[in-house]
């Protein structure tokens, strides 16, 4: 199996029992890094990102046969990854609702507990600033800032208009800038 198979070919192979696992492995390899970083930036720690990534691919395995090819596989995978990550945070928030007060998801604390964390370094301030954003704005910011995703694709993943996404990104970037300047 070549590395550069397109999604249509992979989906067709997935539907044939003999090549199902092979096609699925190729899909994982093709998208694993992009999806991992997308999830990691939402849930912060590697262990949580690993859990969410594995669970999302298990769901992909179950749902891929019924995947409608009128939408792109890439967009569909991102949508599942986003939903799984946000669901994971919601569950964590529910579990810890008593102990957490200042930071709803405890994500800032997770950042601060990283062995390399340095509050004086701009790159860590940036991460803390991103965590101060509302959940959906944070996802929009990450997708545009780190993954340079076109608004059109993002609108399919987040089911939001391109105009609203642009405005959200603009507000997010300004908020982050203010946070960095004032902290």
């Amino acid at each position: 199996m070549t590395e550069i198979q397109n999604d249509q070919e992979l989906l067709a192979l997935f539907k044939i029992p003999a090549s199902k696992e092979q096609a699925f492995t190729a899909i994982i390899k093709k998208y694993q890094e992009k999806l991992y970083w997308h999830i990691r930036r939402i849930v912060i720690t590697h262990d949580d990102a690993d859990d969410v990534l594995q669970n999302m691919f298990i769901k992909v395995w179950k749902g891929l046969e019924n995947f409608r090819e009128d939408s792109q596989l890439y967009t569909w995978l991102y949508r599942i990854a986003t939903n799984e990550s946000l669901t994971f945070l919601a569950k964590a928030k529910k579990r810890n609702s008593v102990s957490l007060n200042d930071d709803e998801n405890g994500l800032s604390n997770k950042l601060k507990s990283d062995t390399h964390f340095d509050a004086n370094k701009l790159e860590w301030k940036l991460q803390l600033a991103i965590q101060s954003l509302p959940e959906k704005q944070r996802v929009v910011f990450n997708l545009r800032y780190y993954e340079e995703m076109p608004y059109e694709e993002m609108s399919h993943i987040l089911e939001t208009s391109e105009g609203a996404l642009k405005a959200s990104y603009h507000h997010a970037a300004k908020k982050i800038e203010n946070y960095i300047l004032n902290n």
Partner: peptide, 27 residues
């Protein structure tokens, strides 16, 4: 929007275990 954020963009603070992606699909 923010020149400061533009210059910070390539700084990745997150670590990842070595070889993590190598056997991910089989796991």
């Amino acid at each position: 929007i923010s020149p400061a954020l533009h210059y910070l963009k390539d700084e990745n603070v997150f670590d990842i275990p070595e070889g993590y992606f190598d056997d991910l699909s089989s796991r």
